[in-house]
Design a protein around this nucleic acid. Structure first.
Lengths: 206, 206
DNA sequence: TGAACCGGTGAGCGGGCGTTAACCGAACGA
DNA sequence: TCGTTCGGTTAACGCCCGCTCACCGGTTCA
């Protein structure tokens, strides 16, 4: 009975690392996605480690083989999300070049897309941010601030007369508008996407 | 030494009830406002009853002389807010009569005003709603749904061709836009108010 | 092949916190 | 004036839960 397994197990290590490493990475990913869903549903403090582990197929303190604490699971989710948002925003702006209007439209489309496909993370972000330890929260806030400034820069090109404080308020309001998706996704994704994009652009360029 | 107090204490009971009743009502109000602030700052599960009591001048289990549980404090805040929102919305629509555009502008102004002067409650509302017991949450949700339908009715008058599902998405997005205030009130209240009103109307009537 | 590694488990500790219990003193009502 | 009411206090219970510990069995690698 060893032959079959011997043929299956020692594959040329497609991930580039040992089988145990790949299994561990999968577990970690499963934990993160389960955590995002659970935190979004009930809020960070009301999810126990036992529940979290169970949702990923392991049970209880096994989480500590992947994260140093419950808080660090939350931190991993939020840092990853903030970095993704910032990187994506930069890419969009770079692609638009000097065309400020195109940059704004790209940012809106990108953010709507992110919100629609990461509703859980959105919920967690403005739900449980202050359950983070101070340094983690500062890190996430710093990333978010950079992302906001990305928007403000683009808006400043379109509305040179307006103060940056006001533009910042506009950007935050626009995020609130787009991030309303998790609370209201009754309509289909296609309709929701086009409604949100139109509303956001109208609100920003009126 | 009785004379001075005898002259001061038995006032004609200005509140209409006994002095003890008035004191109790004040305590209850103090507890509610302290709770709104604390819940907004740190989230419902991370505020202990001792902290809550201390913030209102009493300490610890004295809260149980005014509320049957910690959850019921949260429920009182959210039910009161939702009822206020619904009643205010109805009043605004009634005052506008047949002019749908005026009704919408009134709703926007009213909601912006509410969000600016009740930032704490706004934060608590979309932070800790699911920390409520099932029946309380259902009650709040029912009130919120009626408020949303108020907006949808007005929007339907202005956009007769659009499906109500889509209009509901628009309403939620608009709430998200306006309710972004607590996250971004860096600019002054006056500027913020006019920016939010303009953005909301632009988003809804584009 | 065998020692080291490592991710998983179950048991258990310790602290925080919601809630209850027993009691006290002032305000109230007859 | 005197019994009752009632809002307040302190002490303590009991549970939940984050986290640690001791241990186990398969994978890895020399």
């Amino acid at each position: 009975m060893t032959d079959a397994r011997a043929a299956a197990a020692p594959e040329p290590t497609p991930g580039g690392a040992t089988a145990r490493d790949r299994a561990k990475a999968e577990r970690r990913a499963a934990l993160l996605s389960a955590a995002a869903r659970l935190f979004a549903e009930r809020g960070f403090p009301r999810v126990s480690l036992d529940e979290l582990g169970a949702a990923a197929g392991v049970s209880g303190p096994a989480v500590y083989k992947h994260f140093v604490s419950k808080q660090s699971v939350l931190a991993a989710i939020l840092v990853e999300a903030s970095e993704g948002l910032l990187a994506g925003g930069r890419a969009v702006i770079g692609a638009a070049g000097a065309d400020a209007r195109a940059a704004l439209e790209g940012l809106v489309a990108f953010h709507v897309d992110f919100a629609l496909s990461n509703a859980d993370v959105i919920r967690v972000q403005d739900h449980d941010l202050d359950s983070l330890a101070d340094d983690d929260r500062h890190a996430v806030r710093a990333l978010q601030r950079q992302y906001v400034e990305l928007w403000v820069d683009v808006l400043a090109r379109l509305r040179p007369a307006e103060a940056r404080v006001a533009l910042r308020t506009r950007a935050h309001a626009c995020f609130g508008l787009i991030n309303s998706t998790p609370h209201s996704s009754r309509a289909g994704a296609r309709v929701t996407r086009s409604i949100l994009e139109a509303m956001a652009l109208a609100a920003l360029t009126a």
